[in-house]
Nucleic acid binder design. Structure first.
Lengths: 191, 191
DNA sequence: CAGACCCGGTAGACAGTGTCTACTAGCCGA
DNA sequence: TCGGCTAGTAGACACTGTCTACCGGGTCTG
């Protein structure tokens, strides 16, 4: 239950997040959010110029959540452990916050307002580059940014394919950990 | 311009593909497709029980297209070359058939009717496993299926991140080839 | 040849959506 | 006290996907 005394803007986002995790991205209509916030369907317009901008604000919560889970891993003393934890956090987020994950990476959202993703990406990517740099110390090209980019893509791809069940019919298991480990070993060089 | 003498079912798909590549996934409404096919908005229902099923049929065209581009690579005599070409084909498809690519991997579509993706996946994955197996001959674990899975995820992730511009702001280039090569080298072992 | 039948498509209704505009209740400062 | 502004209401508009009633014309059957 959203607080009654918060500003409407915050309450709309809160209701949206709640609705998203409870009933999936399909139910995130402007009118439904307004309805659940106990307000008329025209009210959100005062704070969000369009439906998409409200969705962006909701997705932003997800970016911050994911970012928060990952930020702390930067200083992990064993960078390889850090990357494993980062990967698990990413995949765990995709699995447990499925609706949010789908929303965060929806094309229509990313096309316009990219600020949310941009910031989150920078943060995530920064941690990734740090850990990769340390994990690959003394190794030759490709340079850490490239490896980090490829690793991130790999991570995201695993999450994506796993989410819609493409992995079960190929790798034949719903445990992504082996895949994650394979990806890490591949990009970092076998331990 | 769609032929006038083909069956309506085929014409709807054809018009849909055309509309998709020309104006993007957002314009693929049931009514608009019917309109462009010169038919009333209730007509599609005779062949497709729902809007989603029509979209699935349109996406199927994409699966077959992509599958066709990749199928021939199975017999590439140098498996590593084959994988590079496969990767390029995949990324090229995502770039040039952007709207179709987005449609093909839309969550709502994949959730229900997975037949299209399932078939396409099996085909793609089969080629991938073949090539990986040959490329990693004599190497130790992980087994080819796992490597192929991780590689596919990596490929798809690169396409995804690249499509919405996340790569430019990290890797600082719009040329995905280095990333692709890094991924291949990583998963196959340096050449 | 006549009539029943079905196939393929039309047309309209319905609930729901996002956007826009006119309006208004209530508060705040002068 | 009064003017103006702020936040929210309410209704219209065009559009969407789905559903149902309807039909025209061809085919098969008796």
């Amino acid at each position: 239950m959203p607080d009654q005394d918060t500003t409407l803007r915050a309450r709309l986002i809160e209701v949206g997040v709640d609705l998203l995790t409870r009933e999936g991205p399909g139910s995130l209509t402007l009118r439904e959010i307004a309805r659940r916030a106990g307000v008329s369907h025209g009210a959100p317009r005062r704070y969000f110029p369009s439906h998409l901008s409200l969705l962006s604000a909701i997705a932003q919560v997800g970016y911050q959540d994911l970012g928060g889970r990952i930020a702390g891993l930067r200083d992990e003393h064993d960078p390889r452990d850090g990357l494993l934890l980062l990967g698990r956090a990413y995949l765990d987020f995709a699995r447990t916050q499925r609706g949010m994950f789908e929303l965060m990476f929806r094309h229509e959202l990313l096309r316009g307002n990219q600020i949310g993703l941009r910031d989150a990406s920078r943060q995530l990517f920064g941690v990734l580059v740090d850990l990769v740099t340390r994990a690959r110390q003394g190794l030759t090209p490709p340079e850490p940014v490239v490896v980090a980019g490829a690793l991130w893509a790999n991570l995201h791809g695993i999450a994506q394919l796993w989410l819609w069940g493409s992995l079960q019919m190929t790798v034949q298991t719903d445990d992504v950990d082996p895949l994650l480990r394979a990806a890490l070993d591949a990009h970092l060089g076998q331990a």
